[in-house]
């Protein structure tokens, strides 16, 4: 019975999944395109001052208005996006590299290696990221690099745990035993039976997490712990604009809106990918 009903239902799901992936992917692509080539083709410089044009509201000349020094705010938001997104991507790459490697090693080897890695992971996971980031900034000073190092130091633990969990789960699955019994080599078991099944869920989590990473980095910058003015970064821009938000709300509106849209696009994409790449919900995420 189930099969009869499941067919059409799955089709409908597939349609929805594609829709999410397309919308999320397109929005994300557009944002990435804008922040990567935007600053290059823009006439105005994100750091150049223009006297007499301070705190102008949005207009045809200045889409996002100008800031307190008369700088074109659209240019600054794009440049800020470049900084924010680059930082998030670099951090995520490092997190994935460290987390997946250690998690896979722990899961596959087991025994004391597993014990040691997981003990560290447990400690790191018990630390709420924001509290820890604040402590790190308190100890080592402010700056985007400090924030990034702090975030990577803490965040890899999630991926180590997820990867280890998936490896353990997949390792226990019957087709791995069956492959072994059919004479598969260890190499073939790892790369043909385990990795392809583990990759999907990790990609899904990473996509969704990239959003949280952007939020965290921007949040810390907003507090003044990350990128320092005058260099633009979405959180820094927000914090700069905050002082003027009674008279020039556009200075807080646009950077926040960009963060919101970027994270939303990542969430949509992740949601779509989740149904597509992780049919067994190995990532253990609510859907």
């Amino acid at each position: 019975m189930l099969r009869v009903v499941a067919g059409p239902l799955l089709n409908r799901f597939a349609a929805r999944t594609n829709f999410l992936i397309v919308i999320g992917g397109a929005a994300l692509g557009l944002i990435l395109l804008a922040v990567s080539i935007g600053p290059l083709v823009m006439q105005t410089d994100a750091l150049s001052f223009e006297r007499g044009k301070e705190l102008l509201p949005p207009s045809a000349d200045h889409w996002f208005g100008t800031d307190r020094f008369g700088r074109d705010f659209f240019a600054r938001v794009l440049e800020g996006g470049r900084v924010s997104l680059t930082a998030a991507f670099i951090a995520m790459s490092l997190i994935l590299a460290i987390g997946i490697t250690l998690g896979a090693i722990a899961g596959y080897l087991g025994s004391w290696v597993d014990g040691a890695v997981m003990r560290i992971v447990d400690v790191l996971l018990a630390l709420p990221p924001f509290v820890a980031a604040i402590a790190i900034a308190g100890l080592f000073g402010t700056g985007l690099q400090v924030i990034l190092i702090g975030v990577v130091t803490l965040w890899w633990a999630w991926y180590a745990r997820i990867t280890r969990g998936i490896v353990l789960q997949v390792k226990e699955r019957l087709h791995v035993d069956a492959a072994k019994a059919a004479g598969a080599t260890t190499f073939s078991i790892v790369f043909r039976e385990i990795v392809p099944l583990a990759a999907g869920p990790v990609i899904v989590v990473a996509t969704l997490d990239l959003g949280s990473l952007i939020l965290t980095i921007a949040g810390l910058s907003f507090l003044g712990l990350g990128e320092q003015p005058p260099n633009p970064e979405w959180g820094t821009l927000l914090s700069e604009g905050r002082a003027y938000f009674l008279v020039s709300p556009h200075l807080t509106l646009f950077p926040g809106l960009m963060i919101f849209l970027t994270v939303l696009a990542l969430n949509l994409l992740g949601e779509g990918l989740h149904e597509r790449l992780d049919p067994y919900n190995l990532a253990g995420r609510g859907g």
Partner: peptide, 22 residues
């Protein structure tokens, strides 16, 4: 839920402050 999970709390806070307070 999808929309709100993408909302930066610091931005939301400022917006609410502006709308409700000002």
């Amino acid at each position: 839920a999808l929309v709100f999970s993408a909302m930066p709390s610091f931005w939301l806070g400022l917006l609410l402050l502006y709308l409700l307070g000002v």
